[in-house]
Simulated scan of single mutants.
Amino acid sequence: MKWGYIAGIAASVVLMTLLEWPRLRQAKLRAAYLLLAISGFTLSVLLLAFPEMPGPTAWIEAVFRPVGRLLE
């Protein structure tokens, strides 16, 4: 059942890439798009496979909480 969801996520990423790729003329923009698309795909598949895993908000909070304490 999860394979269907993964196939849907992959199809969405491929469709978005096919639609956006011709508009991205610079190599830096293409690299940034690929990095974000691959990161988003990986995160969505991981959250699908491991639903109890903390999301990106929890990760950011864990990283920046000590920095926030230093700034106070």
Rank of each mutant, 00 (worst) to 15 (best):
K2H: 08
W3A: 14
W3P: 02
W3Q: 14
W3R: 13
G4W: 05
G4N: 06
Y5G: 01
Y5P: 00
I6A: 11
A7F: 09
A7N: 06
A7K: 09
G8E: 12
A10R: 10
A11R: 07
A11K: 10
A11Q: 12
L15A: 15
M16F: 12
L18C: 02
L19G: 08
W21G: 02
W21Q: 09
W21P: 01
P22E: 08
R23I: 01
Q26K: 15
K28L: 14
K28D: 15
L29S: 15
R30V: 08
A32C: 09
L34D: 05
L35D: 01
S39K: 07
S39T: 12
G40Y: 04
G40M: 07
G40H: 04
F41M: 07
T42Y: 10
L43V: 09
S44Q: 02
L46E: 07
L47S: 06
L48T: 06
L48G: 00
A49L: 15
P54G: 03
G55Q: 07
G55S: 05
G55P: 00
G55H: 05
G55C: 01
T57V: 14
T57K: 11
W59K: 09
E61D: 12
V63A: 03
V63Y: 06
F64E: 04
F64C: 02
V67Y: 10
V67G: 05
V67P: 04
G68V: 00
L70T: 02
L70N: 01
L71T: 08
